[in-house]
Amino acid sequence: MEISTELFKPLNKRTPAREEAVRPSLTYWKDAWKRLKKNKVAMICLMAITLIFLAAIIGPYLIPYSYSEQIRGEEDLAPCREHLFGTDGLGRDMLARVLFGMRISLSVGIVASIINLTIGVVYGGISGYFGGKMDNLMMRLVDIIDSIPTTLYVILLMVVFKNPEVNIFELPVLSLFKGLGASLISIYVALGTTYWITMARIVRGEVLSLKEREYVTAAKALGASNMRVLFKHLIPNCIGTIIVITMLQIPTAIFVESFLSFLGLGVDVPMASLGSLAADALGGIRSYFYLLAFPSLAICVIMLTFNLFGDGLRNALDPRMRK
């Protein structure tokens, strides 16, 4: 076959030599947000979560009753215009109590998750980064802790904390939070120190693979200390995973808190959490069903929205889903 010169044309100077990018380059976060926005369920849940937070934070100031105020002569009212959720046997407004309970439950969910996040990330990061014998030892320890039934451990911890003669505020760190009450702090501590195993394992796995990358070698060559490499380079690179696990841990903590409060191991009276409200309502279930219905509904809505949003977030942040 003969090749004639006509087949060849000079290259138009405006045509770039390489292929042009098909789409504008997106950062990790922009890309994740774009994918999250496409997920209708997750977006509805995000809005619902925002509303739940607003209700829990601002709500109690918008109603004229406080959660502990007893209004004499207005005991055991069914839902009416004065008291939208009715009143309990001591004449306390249920709407105020449910909103306050939501506040407690949400705060437990968030504080416990943050404590778990810190412990889990540091533990898993150190274990994965240093590897070898240390990693082996730390992971065996995690295996052992993992085989201890968590709920039993939390219950045991709450038994100790709730002893009237134990003053947990004697511990220097906790004395800063005296205003919150001993029982609430106990829940934070008990839940915050038990559920970090998953986080530690996953962060370890990520760090284990990330530490072989070139940028780690480069950082080390430039003289970065181990701690700097770990906390400035490696941990920020697993942030997506960390956020997803934390997001899914919040409902778990809320779940366990309501379980504890239901058993009478949660916050002290007159404070209320959604679990203790449901437990209190149980005795009068035949006549005062609404006392059980509202707190139960609140727990279910919180659980549902957090779980569905967490699922959506996982799909959005998972790099394998990235196109």
């Binding site: 309501s258 239901f262 679990g275 449901a278 437990a279 309502a281 059980l292 139960s296």
Partner: peptide
């Protein structure tokens, strides 16, 4: 399934007791 994993056991128990038994 979604309902199952979001509704706590004591709520299921109390609701079942109220509607089915009471």
């Amino acid at each position: 399934v979604t309902l199952g994993v979001t509704v706590p056991g004591f709520v299921v128990a109390a609701l079942a007791q109220y509607f089915i038994s009471v």
